[in-house]
Amino acid sequence: MAGTPQTAFDDRGSSSDDRPDAATEAFLAHRNLLFTVAYEMLGSAADAEDVLQETWLRWVEVDLDAVRDQRAYLVRVTTRQALVRLRTLRRRRESYVGSWLPEPLLTAPDVAEDIELAESVSMAMLLVLETLTPTERAVFVLREVFDLEYDEIAGAVDKSPAAVRQIAHRARAHVAARRPRGVVSVAETRDALDAFQRAVETGDLQSLVDILAPDVVLLGDGGGVKQAVLRPILGADKVARVLTAGQGRIAGRAELRPAQVNGYPALILRLDGETDTVVALRVEDGLITGLYAVRNPEKLSHMERETLLRR
């Protein structure tokens, strides 16, 4: 078997007239949904793609006549594979150099139109989900984002429906205590982003301080490959000085471009014509409370084309 089917099919996934067979057609119909499930559980597009490959390999061995609900079945297999991978990734992230941030995705405008989906894949929310246990994360994502019934989730995480209800309650409380206060509109985020971009490009320190919340936090992810702040920078004055100093060092070589990243407006820093950094924001009450700067080259490959996310 080659790779996960997308626009082309290998011999096993094709019929004599080059149309997809039933298994391939069903998988493709739900592929974007399955990717979204895996990505929300893992925070990594590359690992989500690997999970989809594992799901596909299991799917083509299934007797379709015995599957009552193909969507539920595929979500269950994807969840199980994502749980296995998530537990492995947790161990790796313990030795990660500096702060670990989710892999940013260039998303289509329709993601922003689905407010709940946009919030669930935002950098801020993905970092909150990182604080859950793997099972709590799976239950929260499947229940709160994809609205699956408890008995469906139970089959995906190998727990009883009663246990799933308890896990869901615990996960909701945990997330509620850490998530951004209230849902922020795309327009509000864009206004804050525009002010932030002007301040950075002009080097206006005071304007930068004015758009940052007093308790703003800056996180950088270079993965030990690119230079980035190794620990969180806290406070508007400190963050503003770090940003203006950094921009000063690359003046004349850098270009800031607005983009739609993980459902919200963000900035892409291009250095000498190449994507160097993706800067996502967390906005509350019109001020920036979180800045997430991803520089690790391994995490920037999905910034060249839009990723389709679905619920």
Rank of each mutant, 00 (worst) to 15 (best):
G235E: 09
V128W: 09
P297K: 05
P5H: 08
V62P: 02
A293G: 11
L308A: 08
L83C: 09
L105E: 06
E49M: 02
A162C: 02
Q70G: 01
G252F: 07
R231Y: 11
L193Y: 00
K226R: 15
S44W: 04
P102C: 12
R143N: 10
I153T: 11
W59A: 04
D215R: 15
L267K: 05
N262T: 01
L148H: 04
M303I: 07
A177R: 12
L42I: 10
Y96S: 07
A26S: 14
L256I: 02
A171Q: 08
R241S: 05
P297H: 05
H302S: 10
A176Y: 04
V294I: 10
L105K: 01
I211G: 02
R19F: 11
V111Y: 00
Y264M: 13
M125W: 02
A259M: 05
Y39N: 04
P104A: 15
L291S: 04
F35K: 07
R190H: 12
G222L: 13
G13D: 05
A254V: 14
N296E: 06
M303D: 01
D194C: 03
P232T: 04
V209M: 12
A112L: 06
I288V: 15
E201P: 11
A280F: 04
A45Q: 03
A192Y: 03
D114K: 00
V225W: 08
H174T: 02
A162H: 06
V183H: 03
E94Q: 15
E306A: 15
A162M: 09
G273A: 08
A199D: 03
R58W: 01
V67R: 04
L52G: 07
D17K: 02
S301R: 13
L42G: 10
Q260W: 14
P214S: 09
V37E: 03
L291P: 06
V239G: 03
G273E: 13
G43D: 08
T133A: 12
L269I: 04
A29I: 00
E188A: 14
Y264L: 12
L34S: 03
T107F: 07
D151R: 02
D194M: 14
E40H: 00
Y96K: 12
V128N: 07
A293R: 14
I268N: 01
A82M: 03
E54P: 00
S185V: 05
A168P: 13
R137S: 13
A236L: 03
A154H: 10
I211H: 11
G203Q: 04
Q260F: 12
R93S: 09
G290S: 03
M303K: 00
P297Y: 08
A187Q: 10
V283S: 01
E54C: 05
A245V: 06
V184N: 08
R270L: 15
L129H: 12
E298D: 14
R241A: 13
W59P: 01
R249H: 06
A240L: 04
T307G: 01
L33Y: 00
L193N: 01
Y264I: 04
R137I: 12
K159W: 11
E284R: 14
A124E: 13
G273D: 11
L256N: 08
A82D: 00
E144N: 14
L105C: 10
T79D: 11
R311S: 07
